[in-house]
Design a binder for these strands. Sequence first.
RNA 1: GCUGAUGUAGCUCAGUGGUAGAGCACUCCCUUGGUAAGGGAGAGGUCAUGGGUUCAAGCCCCAUCAUCAGCUCCA
Length: 676
Amino acid sequence: MSEQIKIHLPDGSIREVPSGTTPLDIATSISPRLAAVVVVARIKALHAAAPASTTDETTSEDAMYAAHDAAAEKIVDLRHPLTEDVSLELLKETDPDALKVLRHSAAHVMATAITELYPEVKLGHGPATDSGFFYDIYREKPFTPDDLSAIEQRMADVVQRDEPFLRSYEPREQALADYAEHGEFMKQHFIEKFTQPGEEVSLYKNGAFTDFCRGPHVPSTGRVKAYKVTTIAGAYWLGDEKNPQLQRVYGTAFYNQKDLDAHFKHLEEIKARDHRVLGKQLDLFSIQELAGSGLIFWHPNGAIIRKTMEDWMRDECLRRGYDLVVTPHVMRRELWQISGHEGFYGQNMYAPMELDDAEYRLKPMNCPGHILIYKNSPKSYRDLPVRYAELGNVYRYERSGTMHGLLRVRGFTQDDAHIFCTPAQIEDEVVACVEFAEEVLHKFGFNEFKVELSTWDPNDAKHYVGDPKDWELAVNGLKTALNRKNIPYKEIPGEAAFYGPKIDVKLVDVLGRLWQLSTVQFDFNLPRRFELEYTGEDGEKHQPVMVHRALFGSVERFFGVLIEHYAGAFPLWLAPIQIGLVPISEKHTAYAETVKKELEAIGLRVTLDARNEKMNAKIRDLTLQKVPFVLIMGDKEAEAKAVSVRTRGKGDEGSTPLADFLARAKNLLETKAATL
RNA sequence: GCUGAUGUAGCUCAGUGGUAGAGCACUCCCUUGGUAAGGGAGAGGUCAUGGGUUCAAGCCCCAUCAUCAGCUCCA
């Protein structure tokens, strides 16, 4: 151990220390105060060979456990002995990586509490998540809310004891035997999966609690200062619904109470933006138990927004060279057999219904309908590309537990289009679709998005139609288009539609959440299945290819995301009530009526609150309805033909001539401004 | 579909086996007001649905439906 190693610190200094020195030693040597606040260390080997990448095809489960070890840069315990030249960064509580470590440690603290309270449980795994941590527990009896608070209280004891997290190693066979003896089938599985025979396995021990774990951890349980056990939910062992279900106990943790409070405040904010909550408050839509779950009723306030969105979309399609079509909701079963939907998508379709001697099925997609229109008359290469667009209502069977407000429903409207073109035209058409998608997102106030390219999984070929050569061609077509637009994208194998690969545009909302909406898909299969043709320049018959695209994706889902993005405070052009009029007393109502007429004349939706109420009450009610402009008028305004303007989010702006306000509103309306 | 929780007035929610409650919203009356709630009165409920236990069920038990948090699956 007399060998010296060099430690490079972030300030550029280099320390020469004996091998085996720990980050904690170094922190202490810098300053004892630093040692007290430091939590973990980030190190990077300076000369070592690149870490051996065991295999490229890691499952998500592998990745979950391998993440730390695979990275050239890694996070280690403060007690981790350093044995080679490294760059070392001591992480304080404020580092995001340090927070992850804390949460992982909090999961151990929770597991400690749980095993103390309920010795009969078997442990699964307990990782940190984006917003906290969980631990999967197997126990015959479900945990009750009382159990959760008992667990939380016991955690306080564990924290109080301030037990150090100590790493140790044990022969694999020994660990396996120990776990087998206690019936810890999940731990056995993890050891078998993540370690090799003959290896030593890594264990972490705090007090009497030991867990198979790669770490790293904070120095001791006392560091877990602010935490909460939040909820419990079922989770399948290894994510497979054929396996037994575990109880996943969720919690979250922070280094201090202030951050924990802020976290819950943030959750409150998210809840206040919840489209289901706002949908009720603003009377936008409802779901009726009598009608069935996953089916949306658009109330007047929601329907007027929808109309505005749809009008814009139709106009935009026409402007971009699409033709509008409308196709039926139910079509004969044979059609769905030919298209392949019955075979590849049947699980998601409503059951067939019998009418006369034929069977019909509700449409889950619009493509076959558009194909029939294409086939209805012969096409020449001069006609291509043919672009059919429809706001088509589709119905898909979703399992009962999966519905979620407007975001996951059984009946919805797709702004669907199918482009029939020659192979040579694909690239231009795909580029045009992606540009159109960008325009849609910008128009509705979303400025950030991410692009994914979903390809097939050749190992799972039975879920897809077509042969590998075509798939490769199609994927390359989409890639070329994306590259031409210089759009960065992430490739995701196994996520393609059954008939072809797709480009998914995921938008990022104002809270940074990702939503899957727009999609552009390539399809060579349906043209083949329906024997589509066009006559080429050479007079011969050729087969067109198809591009499917939906930009809102689902009008329902897009609307749901829009509600959350704007927190219900829609820009003027979309707001159901655009202007609220408040006469100060009843004697000003007549003047308000004349103002209302003038505003309506330029196409504004106006509400006049003529109730027998004080103006403050009226202002409050209109404000809670998130009306963009509230115009208040009394004697002064009536005399001067003016209005007193109250702008949403800004408040009182004082009196202004009515003509000026009309010009301002007109401008916002005509430009469809994304804010106010 | 699975695990757990929840379902009471239009909305938000109290109500631990003995005559269904509050606030807001609604209707009427009084009040006629300068930038987020004026005062009073009234009306409104097969306690999700269907069974069961009990002298007695909103409350306890079973089933179904729906919602919520997850899991799984997807626009």
